[in-house]
Design a protein around this nucleic acid. Structure first.
Lengths: 180, 180
DNA sequence: AGTGCTAAAGTCAAGTCTGACTATGGACGG
DNA sequence: CCGTCCATAGTCAGACTTGACTTTAGCACT
């Protein structure tokens, strides 16, 4: 449901074509959820069927180029936003980072390698944090805002990685072979 | 790919039926990723086709009940684990909590309501944290472990919720129905 | 010796998501 | 003018995921 909410939210700002929507989402990086193009078009279609959106065939104002379908939110769509917000905030859904499952199996790798992979990951996370921080500018970082939320999660991840690495290093008497 | 990794990892401990696998995963709560039954069976099938798993029709040792198919990991499967671990740890994948998108649209709700929803959510998160902590026991909480990771994320979420709530309350001059 | 209940073990149809591909129209060097 | 390149705008087939349903067997009574 998150993706629908995102689409509806973006269309509050005015009608957009599918392509533009996609660009906006992609441009926003991690703040918005990942939404691949075919998936986006699929959802737009579905939501138009459900009358949450209206779809028109380009009012031809500007003869820019092959722009085709313009989507705009209906009043039913506006009502849905509120419902979805309630639903999403009410439902508890566990957080998952990309590595949750991997962590459990980490000792299937030789310690040397797992430490090295975790270090690479830590570097990536730090770089990412840097870039997110840049993208947010000073506007998006107030406590309690969406940017604050994202940074908080990234920071938690980074701190954990540091703990995990030093733990592996502390315990590494010698590389242990994966079990048979 | 995470789900495949999870399945392979669990089968390292010995052959299991689909049903047992499902129970194990469900019993582990949020530490493991959500994996619904039909999805699990689908993946088992697929992975058996790919020779990552072997599937046998119950060697009939114990006449328990209608147990049918037992899956066990092959050596190709064991090799896959290592590959998947590398892949998962190397690929950076943004973290998302259940509320990321909702946060951006939060001011579409009256402040009164959004504050109340966030408070409810905070209660849920705290309760969940409590339970996770219980489930982990004292074993699963060492720094750098999977349990530590999960708790860190949950805590980050809780802290953010607190900030967001007090921010809304601080700003609620009279844009919407004031309380008391 | 038959009825109803529950847990085990799964299947089905329909919904959602993705990697890879297509098609169109300027822009630009030659 | 011609071919090539790139951005726009999308489509397609196939992979994955889900809610709801089904089947079978023990078990508790009657």
């Amino acid at each position: 449901m998150h993706k629908r909410l995102l689409i509806l939210g973006l269309l509050l700002g005015g009608p957009l074509t599918g392509y533009d929507l996609h660009r906006v989402i992609a441009a926003h990086g991690e703040l918005y959820r990942d939404l691949k193009k075919p998936n986006l078009y699929y959802l737009l279609d579905r939501m138009a069927q459900e009358r949450l959106l209206e779809m028109k065939t380009e009012t031809g104002a500007r003869g820019r180029r092959g722009e085709r379908l313009v989507y705009s939110i209906t009043s039913a769509g506006r009502a849905q936003i509120v419902d979805l917000l309630r639903e999403v905030l009410t439902a508890y859904e566990p957080i998952h980072s990309g590595v949750d499952v991997a962590i459990v199996l980490l000792d299937q790798l030789p310690k040397r390698e797992s430490a090295s992979l975790l270090k690479q990951r830590l570097d990536q996370v730090i770089a990412r944090r840097q870039q997110i921080s840049l993208e947010l500018g000073q506007g998006g970082r107030e406590p309690g805002s969406a940017g604050d939320h994202l940074l908080a999660l990234v920071d938690a991840e980074a701190r954990w990685l540091k703990r995990a690495i030093s733990r592996i290093q502390a315990s590494s008497g010698r590389t242990h072979a994966p079990k048979t």
